[in-house]
Design a protein around this nucleic acid. Structure first.
Lengths: 233, 233
DNA sequence: CAGTGGTCTAGACCACTGA
DNA sequence: CAGTGGTCTAGACCACTGA
């Protein structure tokens, strides 16, 4: 008996290898479910997920299509490093601070910890093609991520390290975006004029089990950075 | 027998009226399903939807919570009107301009038309609870939307009118977000100081067939508006 | 009309939580 | 340990599509 995840993975693989061809129709759900040995409901959940990823296209009362190549996959969840590389820029970082500290009320609430619990604080200045682009401040639960304290996070993606070394897969984030003005100190860090506009994002990221893995804010220079989104009804 | 939509609506109403109190737990799914006269699966889909909207908070193996007031709702794809209502604000608009004009190079490229093709230009100042919050500028292809020229778009959502009167369903948008400073003229429109920060979004929206239905920019006051996002890996 | 996706049901088993 | 959400099944009925 397969789970929805395994069914989704299998279909994804068959699409990637071309076994299921772009712009062709999937077999009827009842047939596909039977051949995979799962119930139709389970198959449908897997199909829904791939449709959300943009790999499949649902059509009511008609068979589901394998998406054509040109459809842009929604870049819905990338680390800074991944995003910069996808845009063709070379990312790197300078660690400004990385320490163990204790959670104040706000950090504790965001990370789902007690006030005073140990946390890791990481502050990185992030560059694209050698130009400072974003100032990122991250809090991580110490209990789970203590082993990251020594790690080289200047040249590596935090998410990549989490996944590779701890098996933690950031899966889901809630984020808010607002426009602010840079303080004198922040402007100095970027080497721009104080009072310049910036995007401030606040993000809480969870793993597949729903546990909070980070609470982060990022301040992006308004003159250099534009955030891209894809939304679906 | 209720549908998932009806169940979701009922729960939404009970949350809004305070019948289900903020920060309290929902009854167990089995109990709630029985009392609503639906199967547990149907109830779960409704709960999932409200959780996605931010009204409920799921906790594995523990009862689902009614979200506290402060949680900002995820706007995965909502019109301004829908988003404001979801946040509990009363939206309305003032039409500053609505005319037929011709597409310049940039508008033509965005709408997939020839330069000089007829387009509709719509400029609306959008209010939340009687406070000006956003300035929206929209271009629509004239050929398809000429009949909107007379329409009352001050009190109605553009998307709702498109869908109801023309059967056009905006389904998918690509959007960029950047931080800018308000010009003197823009600041005057909002009644704030020039040089205040603002979020500028540029959006291209398509229907289910992939045809561009609008090219729009919106300028949101930085001191009043925060955009909410949910991202998935 | 048959084919097909969309929705719903009733019941089952599992893993985790927390008393 | 009972309570609870997470997942899966087998089958049903519906509405729409398109030959």
């Amino acid at each position: 008996m397969y789970t929805r995840d395994q069914v989704a993975d299998q279909l994804r693989k068959r699409i990637e290898t071309g076994d299921l061809k772009a712009d062709s129709a999937l077999p009827p759900e009842r047939v596909l479910a039977e051949s995979l040995g799962v119930s139709r409901m389970t198959l449908r959940v897997a199909i829904d997920r791939l449709a959300e990823e943009g790999l499949l296209v649902r059509r009511p009362n008609r068979r589901t299509l394998v998406a054509g190549d040109k459809i842009s996959r929604s870049a819905s969840f990338m680390s800074f490093s991944e995003e910069m590389r996808a845009r063709g820029w070379r990312p790197h970082s300078v660690i400004r601070q990385m320490t163990a500290t204790v959670a104040d009320v706000s950090v504790a609430a965001q990370l789902n910890l007690e006030v005073g619990a140990k946390v890791i604080y990481l502050e990185r200045l992030r560059f694209a093609d050698d130009e400072p682009l974003a100032l990122e401040r991250v809090y991580l639960p110490y209990a789970r991520f203590a082993s990251l304290l020594g790690r080289d996070l200047a040249s590596q993606s935090l998410y990549a390290v989490m996944e590779r070394e701890l098996g933690v897969r950031p899966a889901y984030s809630e984020e808010s975006v607002e426009a602010v003005l840079l303080s004198t100190e922040e402007a100095e860090i970027f080497g721009v004029a104080a009072g310049a506009p910036a995007l401030l994002t606040r993000r809480i990221t969870r793993d597949e089990e729903g546990n909070v893995v980070e609470a982060a804010t990022s301040l992006y220079r308004g003159d250099r950075y534009r955030m891209a989104l894809v939304r679906r009804r």
